[in-house]
């Protein structure tokens, strides 16, 4: 771990009981959902992490507790540091507090996570889908979302599929 990162991780450990992992010099801190906004605020204000460069999620289906990890990657431009915060969230339709009050980039990133994973961010000012059409059912990056969309057409099932195709009229 970078020398200058050690005191910052220590602060997180003492304040929020965060555990940390290190892999090839990259540090990840596990933070509880109820602490995440406070942790982000402290990192931004006291430790120069002024950029939320990535906000993403992972689905660990069929594991349910926790099913998702939400990952906040913070960058410090001043100190040239990177730190990841991981938040495990429980259940099928999980909820997290919004980070838009701390980082404005959260506005679109949280909409994308809601669109793709169905994780709701409470207090988000505009909680719509961002990439998919509004009428899409389900959340495509969840692991239980069906992979294929339409059965491929071969000679043996050509007509069967052809009949079900919604061809356009003039």
């Amino acid at each position: 771990m970078e020398k200058s990162l050690e005191p910052i991780v220590k602060v997180l450990q003492e304040k929020f009981g965060a555990t940390f992992e290190e892999f090839r010099g990259e540090v990840q801190c596990m933070v509880k959902p109820e602490h995440i906004i406070e942790a982000l605020t402290i990192l931004r204000d006291a430790h120069h992490f002024e950029l939320l460069s990535m906000l993403s999620a992972i689905d660990y289906f069929p594991q349910t507790s926790p099913r998702f990890h939400v990952i906040y990657q913070l960058n410090s431009l001043e100190k040239n540091l990177t730190l990841q915060l991981r938040v495990p969230v429980e259940g099928e339709s999980p909820k997290l507090p919004t980070s838009t009050g701390v980082f404005k980039t959260g506005l679109w990133r949280e909409r994308e996570i809601f669109d793709m994973f169905g994780i709701e961010f409470e207090g988000h000012p505009d909680p719509r889908r961002i990439l998919n059409p509004d009428e899409l059912e389900g959340h495509p990056l969840r692991r239980d979302f069906p992979l294929g969309y339409e059965e491929p057409q071969f000679s043996f099932n050509y007509e069967e599929i052809d009949l079900g195709k919604p061809y356009a009229k003039e």
Binding site: N132, L136, P140, F145, L147, G148, Y149, E150, P152, K165, P166, Y167, A168, K169, E170
Partner: peptide, 15 residues
């Protein structure tokens, strides 16, 4: 692209 995001042939929209 056999997935949820892409039309399986543009003949679903226009002739």
């Amino acid at each position: 692209f056999n997935n949820y995001a892409i039309y399986q042939g543009v003949d679903e929209i226009v002739p």
